[in-house]
């Protein structure tokens, strides 16, 4: 079965559950096959968890784990722990939920920064070092973290280093009235997630990831990506600008999006379509800009408009 059909089957399967959000679904899927991670930030009840669950369900054979982040969560609750086994008289390693294909880190900002940071190594390098032993993840390993932007009480904002590990930050937002009515009728008897059949195997996803890496990316567009990300570093309203990791993420996710479009090369529109989601959450605005009502997303939109693009 071809790469393109796998991609489109996966996409339509998730879209059948997460109604009215085809763009976000495609972006999240692209994020997965680009080897990145996504941070969904939206109001409660907009379908963040459903999206994660539907994605896990659609991939046959993929391990899905969910961690509800709470203030008393400890790093070992995520990574795993070595426990002394009296029967064998030795320490035995109990892997934590991080050893999985798809990890839903729900309400990630409710855990302390210490626990949040436990994910740094895993997300950045696809490995975990526990008690001096390095464990590599060779599967999909896709972290979907969620947080809601309205509550501040009892939450810890994600550290900048952690933010930078997320390829994308995107929002689902409310759907149209018609779509919402469709959601109601869908869930009248049984939740569509429960009815969802797997449409792709874990190996097929790994193939998709390999295909995304093969998507051709012209030298000129690489310069464009660097120029666009570099523009944040000269911007007067930005205190902390985007890192080369952002350029890398932008390139990889554009390649993955090209797979979903059925192209084997990247065009500048693809880069632009995802640039805000890739760059904005990594920026820290200067206090003057923040209090004058500028938003990082708007700044990135402006930068896209003003940075000359290869025609």
């Amino acid at each position: 079965m071809s790469i393109a059909t796998t991609a489109s089957r996966l996409e339509s399967a998730v879209c059948s559950v997460v109604r009215g959000q085809p763009e976000v679904v495609r972006r999240v899927l692209a994020c997965m096959i680009s080897g990145g991670h996504v941070l969904l930030e939206d109001f409660p009840g907009t379908g963040k968890t459903t999206l994660a669950k539907a994605l896990a369900k659609a991939i046959g054979g993929a391990v899905f784990k969910r961690v509800q982040f709470t203030p008393d969560l400890l790093p070992s609750d995520i990574l795993g722990i070595s426990v002394f086994d009296p029967s064998s008289q030795e320490f035995r390693f109990h892997p934590g939920p991080v050893f999985t294909d798809i990890l839903l880190a729900d309400e990630i900002n409710r855990a302390s920064p210490r626990t949040q940071s436990a994910l740094l190594e895993a997300m950045g390098e696809r490995q975990a070092t526990i008690d001096g032993v390095q464990h590599n993840f060779d599967g999909i390993f896709f972290v979907i973290a969620t947080q809601n932007p309205v509550e501040f009480r009892g939450t810890y904002p994600l550290p900048e280093a952690q933010m930078d590990r997320f390829t994308l930050q995107c929002a689902l937002g409310y759907v149209s009235a018609a779509e919402e009515a469709a959601i109601l009728s869908d869930q009248a008897e049984v939740h569509p997630v429960d009815a969802l059949e797997s449409v792709a195997t874990r190996d097929e996803i790994l193939e998709l990831m390999a295909a995304a890496r093969r998507v051709r990316f012209s030298e000129e567009l690489r310069h464009y990506v660097v120029r666009l990300v570099g523009a944040t570093r000269a911007h007067p309203k930005i205190q902390l600008a985007a890192s080369p990791r952002a350029s890398l993420a932008l390139m990889k996710i554009s390649q993955a999006l090209a797979v979903f479009q059925g192209h084997d090369f990247v065009s500048p529109e693809l880069i632009q379509s995802v640039a805000v989601d890739v760059i904005a959450h990594r920026l820290v605005l200067s206090p003057e800009a923040k209090y004058s009502g500028s938003s990082a997303r708007q700044i990135v939109v402006d930068l896209i408009e003003s940075t000359p693009v290869p025609a």
Binding site: E219, E220, H223, T307, P308, P310, A311
Partner: peptide
């Protein structure tokens, strides 16, 4: 005019 910025390669 079709490429710009600091890219000096073939267009």
């Amino acid at each position: 005019t079709i490429s710009s910025g600091d890219y000096h390669g073939a267009v």
